[in-house]
Amino acid sequence: MRGRVIRIERISSRAGVIEEPAVTSKGYQLADAAQGKNKHHAEFAVYAKSLDEVAVLLDKGFSLWMGAKGKRASLIAPRSLRIVRSEDCISA
């Protein structure tokens, strides 16, 4: 692994907003693609306690709920996300 995950960004955010991973009392909320058309339903939600855990699940094909202040959260596919690691931020 190449450093600790410090941020997960949506590659193409909605205009005028900065979206961040949705966090609940259970942790970051994700959806398993194996649930097919039902993956967005709350009863099939999967939770991760850290961004590092989220990154592992994204690599396995899970989608991540992303939201912004005043905007409803959206389910975002892993191909539409950028994982930023601490190593990526170090300048030489």
Rank of each mutant, 00 (worst) to 15 (best):
D32A: 07
A45T: 10
H40N: 14
D32L: 00
Y47R: 04
A45R: 13
L51H: 03
N38R: 15
A33I: 03
A33D: 10
A55T: 12
A33T: 02
W65Y: 11
L51I: 02
Y47C: 05
M66S: 02
V56Q: 12
L57G: 00
W65I: 09
A48N: 05
L58K: 01
A34Q: 08
K37H: 13
D59M: 08
E53N: 10
K60M: 14
A45L: 06
L58D: 02
K37V: 14
Q35D: 10
D32M: 00
K37S: 12
A42I: 13
E43H: 13
G61S: 07
A48R: 12
E53S: 11
A33Q: 08
A55V: 05
G36W: 08
D59P: 00
L64R: 01
D52K: 06
A42L: 12
L58N: 02
L57M: 12
F44C: 04
W65C: 08
F44A: 04
A33F: 09
D59N: 10
K37D: 14
K37M: 13
D59Q: 09
D32K: 01
S63R: 09
Y47K: 04
V56W: 00
V56A: 10
M66F: 04
Y47H: 12
V54L: 01
W65A: 13
H41G: 07
K49M: 10
D32N: 14
D52F: 06
G61R: 05
E43V: 12
E53P: 06
D52G: 05
W65V: 10
G36E: 12
F44L: 08
K60G: 03
K49L: 11
E53F: 07
K39W: 11
F62E: 05
M66T: 00
Q35G: 00
K60H: 11
L64F: 07
G36A: 12
L58T: 03
Q35Y: 09
H41T: 11
G61N: 06
W65K: 08
L64N: 05
A45Y: 15
E43T: 10
A42D: 14
S50D: 07
D52N: 13
V54P: 02
L58G: 01
M66R: 02
G36D: 13
D59C: 03
S63F: 01
N38C: 05
D52P: 06
N38D: 15
V54C: 03
L58Y: 04
S63Y: 11
V56D: 14
N38A: 12
F62W: 13
F44M: 07
G36L: 10
L57W: 06
L57T: 01
S63V: 05
D52M: 04
H40C: 11
E53L: 08
E53H: 09
D32H: 00
F62N: 08
F62D: 07
E43M: 13
L51C: 03
E43C: 09
H40T: 15
Y47V: 05
S63D: 15
S50A: 09
L58Q: 02
K60V: 09
V46H: 04
D32W: 00
L58R: 01
V56T: 14
D52T: 06
